[in-house]
């Protein structure tokens, strides 16, 4: 018996999969569950394109075993918008030029969401530090960081604190 039956919450819905012991969460999401928003960029935790949240923590799904996810809450980029309607963060990223080819974008959206869930007023340095594990080859990062700053400024102004990404 080398496969594991694993049940976890995926974007709010319980899913059960039968996976080999070392299968990565990224393969499970993309190939078994057909959620292809999380991207395979490097397969060794260097680029962050596969970043997802497991119990609110950002992890590289390409090096995390699905079998460790039993009973946990997994959120992917698909779960961070409301049925495809972009969140405030996502909208700010579109507006500010955070997106070029977009292949790294899901990973950035997830990593920044994790940041904003734990820190309501991150500095520029905090933001840059929070995305150290995410490579963007197109934008040179400035417009990504500005999008996050814009969301933070808007949410502080609106007094909505950490609920910006809901």
């Amino acid at each position: 018996m080398t496969s594991n039956s694993v049940t976890f919450s995926l974007n709010g819905v319980d899913r059960t999969v039968d996976v080999p012991g070392a299968e990565t969460l990224l393969d499970t999401l993309r190939d078994r569950l057909n959620l292809r928003g999380s991207k395979e960029g490097c397969l060794e935790g260097e680029c962050g394109a596969c970043t997802v949240l497991v119990d609110d923590r950002p992890i590289d799904a390409c090096i995390y075993p699905t079998a460790a996810c039993g009973g946990r809450r997994v959120r992917t980029v698909e779960g961070l918008s409301d049925g495809g309607v972009p969140s405030l963060l996502q909208r700010a990223m579109v507006r500010s030029g955070s997106i070029q080819c977009g292949f790294c974008t899901p990973g950035f959206v997830v990593a920044v969401t994790a940041l904003l869930e734990r820190e309501s007023n991150p500095s520029r340095a905090d933001i840059a530090d929070a995305v150290n594990g995410n490579i963007c080859r197109c934008t040179g990062y400035a417009q990504i960081i500005e999008a996050v700053q814009a969301v933070v400024a808007d949410s502080l102004a609106a007094g909505t604190g950490q609920e910006v990404e809901a």
Binding site: G48, R57, P58, Y64, A111, D129, N132, G133, N134
Partner: peptide
């Protein structure tokens, strides 16, 4: 600890 990989590594 702050310089071990990115947040994705540090988190877990």
């Amino acid at each position: 600890a702050r310089q071990v990989g990115g947040w994705q590594t540090q988190a877990i």
